[in-house]
Simulated scan of single mutants.
Amino acid sequence: MISQREARHLAAGALRAHGLPGRPKALKWRSAPAQAQLFTAGNLLLKVYAPDARARGQRQASRQTEVASALAQGPFRAPPVAFFDGQTLAMPRIAGPDLATLWRDGDPTVPTLAGLWLRAFHDLSQHRFPFQPVPHVKWLRHVAGQVEKQDRLVIDPKAFTAVCAEAINQAHALRSQPSTRAIIHRDMTLANLLYDGSVTWGIDFENTSEDAPLRDLFTLALDFVTLCRRNGCDDGRALTDLRAAYGDNRTAPRVREFLTRCYALHVWANTPLAPTPIHHARLVAVRRLLATGEQLI
């Protein structure tokens, strides 16, 4: 972990070393020690990593450079890396709010912007891939076994293991069904998409491994559902617009249904017994879709 005070000192030193003006200003007032602290300085955003998180910073700098180069033009982009000195990552500061803020403010175009950006990002590496359910079944059996042995504590464990069993039974008929793989974002939330009035910018890249692209779509969809539950907006319209903008026509419907169940169970499995309001809202959302068969993606 790194304190805000120590991180500010390092950010100031990094600016001086690169001959850049400005004094680092914290994005959050009195932020607690964390793996990384965020500052602004002029038109730059500075992310200062803790000493034990330097490898993570290097991964983000490398991956963001790749994505920014590939998405350098058009309405869906990623900001380039200005510099990375081993602990401080600098990039242009985007002059606009994140999509979560825009959605709370009532902007109806947010689902479309999110879906189109995600499609552009996945298209950089997406390819057809016959679906392989075995890794998912292994995880389902593993996590259900943990819950049964009480090595993992979840809310309503009997219901959880029952849904795991249903998903396992569903999986066997899906082998080699149409699906895709891509290098995904793996932390795809509305807060990691920014809009400056003409361009949608994705941030916080790190992952370089392939996975089912629908994992990213699921986390975005769950964001919309959770925010709508809290703010009283229409999540049905939001999900329809998100799916239409993303436009997945390569995944078999039964594979999409199975993946939705797996991702929902992952949220359930990682919800603490004393959930925060956001954890609770997410759990309510995924339990509802598991009970009704509702398709987020």
Rank of each mutant, 00 (worst) to 15 (best):
Q4W: 02
E6Q: 15
E6T: 15
E6F: 11
E6G: 07
A11F: 11
R16C: 01
A17L: 08
G19L: 03
L20E: 00
K28W: 03
K28S: 12
W29H: 12
A34I: 09
L38R: 13
L38S: 12
L38H: 12
A41E: 06
L46D: 11
Y49E: 07
P51C: 09
D52P: 01
R54Y: 07
G57V: 01
G57C: 06
R59P: 03
Q60S: 10
R63T: 06
R63P: 03
R63W: 08
R63G: 05
Q64V: 02
E66S: 00
V67N: 10
A68L: 01
A68H: 03
S69E: 15
L71E: 01
R77S: 06
A78D: 00
P80H: 05
P80F: 07
T88W: 11
P92A: 12
G96A: 09
A100I: 01
R104L: 14
R119H: 02
D123E: 10
S125D: 12
F129P: 00
F129D: 13
F131I: 10
V143E: 10
Q146M: 00
V147K: 03
E148S: 12
Q150T: 13
R152W: 06
L153H: 14
A159C: 09
A162G: 04
C164G: 07
A167Q: 04
N169K: 09
A173S: 14
L174S: 13
R175D: 08
Q177I: 03
I183P: 03
D187P: 09
N192I: 12
L193Y: 15
L194S: 11
D204T: 07
T208Q: 10
D216F: 10
D223V: 10
D223E: 13
D223S: 15
V225F: 04
L227I: 13
R229F: 12
R230L: 04
R230T: 05
C233K: 14
C233L: 14
D234N: 15
D235I: 01
R237A: 15
L242M: 13
A245D: 09
G247V: 01
R250F: 00
R254I: 05
F258D: 08
Y263P: 07
H266E: 14
A269M: 01
N270F: 07
P277F: 00
I278A: 07
H280E: 10
R282D: 08
L283W: 06
V284H: 02
V286P: 02
A291P: 00
A291Y: 08
G293D: 08
E294I: 04
